[in-house]
Each structure stands twice: as C-alpha cells, then as structure tokens.
Design a protein around this nucleic acid. Sequence first.
RNA 1: CGGGGCGUAGCGCAGUCCGGUAGCGCACCGGUUUUGGGAACCGGGGGUCGGCGGUUCAAGUCCGCCCGCCCCGACCA
Length: 569
Amino acid sequence: MRFSEAFIPTLKEAPSDATSISHKLMVRAGMIRQTAAGVYSYLPYGYNVIQKMKAIVREEMNRAGGQEFLLPALQPTDIWERTGRLEAYGQDVFRFDDRHGHEMLLGPTHEEVITSIVASDIRSWADLPKLFYQIQTKFRDEARPRFGVLRTREFTMKDLYSFDADEAGLDKSYQKMFEAYCRIFERVGVAYEPLATAETGAIGGSASHEFIVLADSGEDHLVKCPKCGFSALLGETVCVAPATEPNRAECELKIVSTPGMTRVEQVAGFLKTKPHRLIKTMILEKGDGGLLAALIRGDHELNMSKLMGSVDDWGLKLASAERIAEATGGPVGFSGPIGLSGITVLADLTLKGETSMVVGANKEDAHYVGCEVGRDFTPDSFCDLRKAVEGDLCPKCSETLKLEMGIEVGHIFKLGTRYSEKLGATFSDASGKENPVIMGCYGLGIERTVAAVIEQSHDERGIILPKSLAPYQAIILPMQAPEGELVQLGEKCYNLLKQAGVDVLLDDRNVWPGVKFADADLIGVPTQIVLGKRGLKEGRIEIVDRRTKEKTFLPIDVTADSLRDAVAG
RNA sequence: CGGGGCGUAGCGCAGUCCGGUAGCGCACCGGUUUUGGGAACCGGGGGUCGGCGGUUCAAGUCCGCCCGCCCCGACCA
C-alpha cells in the first residue's frame, strides 16, 4: 500500500477526553474514531490489526479442535428467560420489541443460543466431546464505558463452548483452552498472568481463570510477589498481614460523643487517632433473610466473596438501614460489636487480641473507645475477611507483595450443567441413561486484547506493534519527494518486497522527513526502511527496528530475498 | 444511578464572569522555496458557538428546559 492512497488519518494531538494510552494512541494512529459513548468505528488500519488478532485466535481455536459457528446477535428474549439470566444481566442488555411485538435483545453473549442448538442436535455420548466457537459482536449496555476500546458497549468477543460427557472430559477441554490462551497471548507478545478465581459472576459455574495483562489502566487489581512470582487477584488472595505486635496497652472502655461521624476517616480524625485503630462493623443480610455482622479494621476493605465463602452463603448482601437498626438498635454508621446479640459475628484475623480500638456504640452519634477484642466482646470466629493491601505478605514465600493493575483479556469457566439442564441439552450415555451435557465457556475480548497489547507495547513516539498484529511488516521512508533517486529506490524496494510476499507500506507522500518518521513511529510498523542521501552516498540502505531503534544496513543493490530477510529480522 | 466537569472550524483551545462585527495554534486548499525528525514565506477556504425556547435594540456570553460527551463513584467481562 502507498501511504498517499491509504486512509490512515494520523493526529498530532489526542482528543482531550482520551485518558488511557491505548485510547490516545489508537485515535492518533488513525485506527479508531468514536461514534457514541462506548461505541467505536474501526478505520482500515485499526480494522486490519483487529483482523490479525481474530486470525490468531481462530488458528488457535482450530488447533485445539474448535469448530467455528456464526450465531445471531439478534436473539429472542425467551431463551434468556429459560436460563434466568435476564435478571443477572439486568440493565446491561439492550432490549426492544420487534414490529410484531416480540421481545428481542442484542446478545451480550451466546451460551443460550449455542446450548439450544446442542439441545436439539446432540443426542448421544458418541457425539461428544465438542468444542464450538464463534468470534462475533456482543452488546452490553455498560453502566460506564471507558478507556477507549477497553470497555465498550459493542465489542468483538471470541467465545468457545465445550460440551463433554463427564467431568474428566471437561477437565481435558478446559486444559486445552488454557493452553490455547497461553499460545495466543504469547503470539501477540504480551506479558500476562492466568489467575484462578472463584467468582463466576453472572455466568455461574465452578473453576475459572482470568487471563490478565498487566497495565496501569487496568480495572482489575491483583497482587504479585516480586520474589517467588506468586500472583493472584486481589479478591482471591489469602491475606497475610506483616507480623506486627498487636497493641496490648491497657485500656478502659469509654463511650464518647461523635456527632455526625459515620465515616472511618471522620471518626479517626475527630478522635485524633488512625483508621487502623477503628473497627468497622458491617451488617449483612443472608440469603435466608437472617442477619450477620462482619468486623474489619478501619483501614481494610471487606472482601465479600471471602465472607460468602466463610459462611457458605452466596446470597449475602449489605443490609438496609431498617435491618441494621433491627440488629443493632442504632442507625447506620454507628454499628459496633459490643452488646450485639442474636446474630453471628465474624471478625477479620487482624483484629485478634487488639486493644484500644474504637467501635460504634449502636446508638446515634456515639462510639466506644478503649475497646479490647476478647474482653469487651468475643466474635463467634476469626477468619480472613478482607482484601489484601500493599504491604501484605506473600502467602507462599512471605515476601512483601506488590499491588498491580491489569486488564482482563480472557476468562475461562467450567460451567457444569447449569445451562444444559435449563435448556434440556442432554445425551444418552452408554447405558442409555439421559444426562445433561457438561459445559465450559471460554471468552476472549478481541479489541480489548489489542488495546492491552498497545498499553504494554508503546513508547513516547507511539505504538510498537508486534509483527503478528502489524498490518504492514515494513514501511519504506524515502527522505525525498516527489521525485529523485531516493524515490526511485523506494519504488524498487516496494516492488521487491511485494514480490517477496511481504506486506509493506511505501511513504510516497510529498511531506517532510520528520512527518514520515513521526507517522511511521506513531502507527507502529515493526520495521522502517530508511532511504536517505547519506546512505545513498555510502551505497547502503538503513533498516531500523521500531522497538529497539537498532539500525542495520543492506547494500544498495538489494534483492527481494535480502530485503525480505532484513524485514523478517 | 449519585457526584463533578465539558460542549465554540477536522484536532487542541481562548472568548462566557462584565451582552455590542467569532478568534488563536495545528490540520486543510493554491503558490514559491525546501527534504534525515511534525519546515518557511505569500495567499485562501471552512462555524446553524450542542439543540429548543425565553430576556434584550442586540445573545457564544444572561435565564429555563433538553441532548451529548468525559471524569470520580456504584456496578460489571
């Protein structure tokens, strides 16, 4: 392609509302333009990168034995009612009635559709296992789209669904996908972490892994051990606080007035103490309607999934003001463990043996100071209830953990029989008995992965595309225009490379060298072929690696082979 | 959904407080020179100032309603 004929509208400045690096660079590089909040148009250069990404994913899915489908984005609402997921997705689903008044939706995902097909057309154990996938547009009316292409309302996702006859088969399918994902992320050159997770959100199921790409603009928090390499999602980390002596000072329990102080910082400031000397008492409503209290140090955050796990109740939610009053006799913001009766009280491990703590007094505008855990109240049990914080220790090797942020680019789940049961996807086993098919689902965000690559692979001049995603392997930059020896040489290199089957961009524009360099750097073509007077005089042409800026030289009488090899580098 | 901010040329912004001929930089078009890091000079085009309504002799500017976009939070892949 000739730059003069291509449509790569580069920008010197990024739109002011772009915040993440990938957003700024993708707009500046002429890859994307925004059409609405969380809705982007892909320009040819950007779309080409997306297509490369899809091709890699497709290859790896096929290698693992996947078969590709095309499924409708437009789906009838009733199959969603059968699985009960309309509730779970709630406001995130784009819904409307068609002209006949039938309720339709734009699919946020495709489990229902694919499982319906399997339900009607897979009948025997001999039909299993199967790996079915599709790479398609999904729609989710996100509460808050952000970070450019990282979180959008319309996006391309690869989803593969596995169908197995037994658990062992599911394990095998899961393992195949796990390996395929590793290959994919390696091929696009990102540093990633597969992290185990217990949370399965709206999809529901047992085991799962999130594939996270480390990046500052990520929305996922994780911890990483600089020593042994341990890493885990923040919410999944077993918390190990550094071994400090608890405060054993003698203290006297006293009630003090704290007018209007409901927030930890307010109370701490008012009483001239530190948040970690406070105990937060959170009242929760159980799935069966009962109440429960969870105690957390003031500077910590409650980890809902740990708490849910501790009490084996996945229907827990924060209690309403009315229920709090019912449990404690006081208003929201002044709850405390002292005198609480009739409900289970769980305390985080860090509170064990602490003295001189501040707790709510279960009445308006009052707190206790000088509270000693075990003397003034005794929780029913101590367990790990909090989210990890900077400074916590690695549960494997006790090194101090680092907090990092990352982008979730893939998520794989063992689903079990949840959907197959509801949608009647069963098969006859060898003994003739009907069993629900055992499922797994494996998602991967296409645009998000591309954005994540850019988040990781850029410099102050622009994007650095890996060869695997680059629409053009090389860009030829004749330092002269519109005519002359260098232009002739550029044409020659261009034709030779095309002959050699290399995707190449020739910057034939009549612009200043600085513009050519700047655009070449910005759009991230992996190899630059610089044709200048200097080189011409010395009888050589210059090959520059976009990433390393390293220069190599070729004799000026290039051939298709020598050029191709230099570009393949 | 709560809190905050913004909307003026393709992009980045000034002008709004205090009403009086709509500006700047980059980009764009024509010309001259020029080609190893976003060039210089000359000439030029481009705006329902987000929309609707109101106040006024006069509204980008004041008032009201609406729309859009961004940020923080809640929520979520």
